[in-house]
Structure formats: C-alpha cells, structure tokens
Design a protein around this nucleic acid. Sequence first.
DNA 1: GAATCATGTAACATGATAAGTATCGTGAAA
DNA 2: TTTCACGATACTTATCATGTTACATGATTC
Lengths: 156, 156
Amino acid sequence: MRKDSRLSRMLHVLLHMARHDGPMTSEHIAKMLQTNPVVVRRTMAGLRDAGYVSSEKGHGGGWVIAADLEKVSLLDIHRAVGGPSLFAIGAEHENPACAVERAVNGALEDALREAEALLVARLGAVSLAELARSFDAQCVAGGWNPGTGDAYGAPA
Amino acid sequence: MRKDSRLSRMLHVLLHMARHDGPMTSEHIAKMLQTNPVVVRRTMAGLRDAGYVSSEKGHGGGWVIAADLEKVSLLDIHRAVGGPSLFAIGAEHENPACAVERAVNGALEDALREAEALLVARLGAVSLAELARSFDAQCVAGGWNPGTGDAYGAPA
DNA sequence: GAATCATGTAACATGATAAGTATCGTGAAA
DNA sequence: TTTCACGATACTTATCATGTTACATGATTC
C-alpha cells in the first residue's frame, strides 16, 4: 500500500520556509516536492486552517509561516494534514458478533494502541524549531554551511 | 485507506481451528470471515507455506493446524501473510537529494522505527496458544462456557 | 481598468493494493 | 464416475493519496 507522505512533505516545506525570506509560491514548493501546485495547495490548506501558515493571492503572494515554530510539534502537523490513521493493519469488523474475533481484535488493538501511544509521544515531543536546529547541527557536523538559502542543492 | 485485515482474519481462523475437530473447509471458513472461499485460500496459502497449517483435497478435506501453537507467535502469522508494512505514513522519496528532506525523513523514521520495534516485540511475545487461553479466560470471566464447538454464536 | 500573478476550488484521472468474484484444473474419497 | 475441496488464474471492485486540467477569485502592477 502506498504510504501517506503528507506529513513528511509538509515538514520538508516548513523547514524550507523557515529559512526563506518572503512568501513561497505553490509553484516553487511544488518543484521542491516534485509534484503539482494543486497538490501543494490542497495539502497546505490544512496547515492554513490550523493557523500554522497563511497564504496571500496576487503579485508577491504565496505562503508564509504564521506560528511560532517552537510551539508546533510534528504531531500538530500530522493532525493538521488530516491526522490519517498511522497503521496499515487492523481488524475487519468494528464490533463482531463472534467472541473469538472480539478476543483477537482486542489483543491486536492492545498492541497497536501501545505502539501508537509511543509514536504520538515521539511526534508530539519534537517541535518544528527543534527539527530545524537538528538539521543545522547536521550541516555543521557534515562540514558545510547551508547558509540561509534553500538547501535542495545540498550534497548527498 | 482501508486497513489490511489479513493478520486479524487469520488469527480469528486459527483460534477457531484450534477448538475444532477435523479439517475445516474454505467454504466454512469463508462464512466465518464473511468473505469468499478464494480469499480464504489465497490468504491461508501463506500459512501453509510457513508450515502452520496444511490442506487436503477431496472428500473430508480442508484445513488443519500443522504446528504447535505454543511456538507460533502473532508476529509469525503477520509475516506468513506477507508481513505487510505496519504503517500507513512514510516519506515520499527513498534517498532524496535535498538535505532538509533527508533530515525530516530521518526524524520521522526514527520515531517510526521505535514504534515498529515495540509493536514487533508485542506481537512476537504472544503465542497463538496464549491468545487461545486468554480467550477461554474471558469466557469464564463472562460466565459462559464456549465448550469445544465453534463460538461464533456467542453472546455480545 | 486591464493585464498579470497567485491562490481556491471543482472535477476527473491515475496508481497501488487488499479484497471480491468467476472459472477451470487437479486430486482424493465415496 | 460422481462429488467434493483445494489450486490457480484472471478479472473486477473499493479505497484513497496523488496527479492533472480548468476555471473562478482576489491582489498587485502598469
């Protein structure tokens, strides 16, 4: 099953926006993500509704960050893009009549619940600002300075 | 996206088989799962290849358990049905050229890896026999005796 | 105010994958 | 030899993120 990459993509965009002066257009962002401007607008609409970014039309318009990155976690972004189910596996029926099936589903859901709690905790513990700082630290450790420009010509 | 229910379904089937004398036909199993016999054969083929069940053709044929349930974990079943990806989210590109994207993916993958390790540990720690016993215990606690027959007429 | 730029939105196509279905072949038991 | 049950193939369906086209709306520039 193809994976939902909205969270990953939005984090990618937000980090670029953080080190970018002025608005970024959907067109520009789409090139970064190697996709279509409409996909960008569609996905970023969730971030706008949550107040993390804002958008302006017309000349000089585009997207800008509208929140304190220290106060927004990866989990917040996950939820802003729709908070899709984290897992690809699950039970077929919600409330099965069969007692065996209920027992099986209960056991599986226990395990999934634990894993989800861990994942939610991890995503909730990291702010966008921290993620940006850890990127900067990686750059220094790697011996090159990304400066303040876009970094998508960076060495592999 | 619709969730992969193969693990859940196979656990359901195996517990019924454990409390059932003689082979169970794909038709019979399909009714339990509210699906089609072909889907049953397709999914159970993985269990057969792994040696957890065996199948016989002709009169009196069907599926029987072929392994010690104490020695088969939920994780084993997950792998036998194809071991599909556990998560519904992930990164878009495997090895992005963009350094920011690599940093984002790395952070996400760290969190996912932890959650996956926990989930794998939980599924690996429970044997089918334990799952069957916990079902029996639930029955007793609920004040009714499922006996040795099929239990899918059990009270909700 | 006309042209241009950029977002907003609707509608439809695509891709991937589990699941559902129909059909025929094969082998075993009665 | 008839029936039963699995094995295998091919095709369809359902779902949903993603991709794409087209057009409307609003803001800036001239």
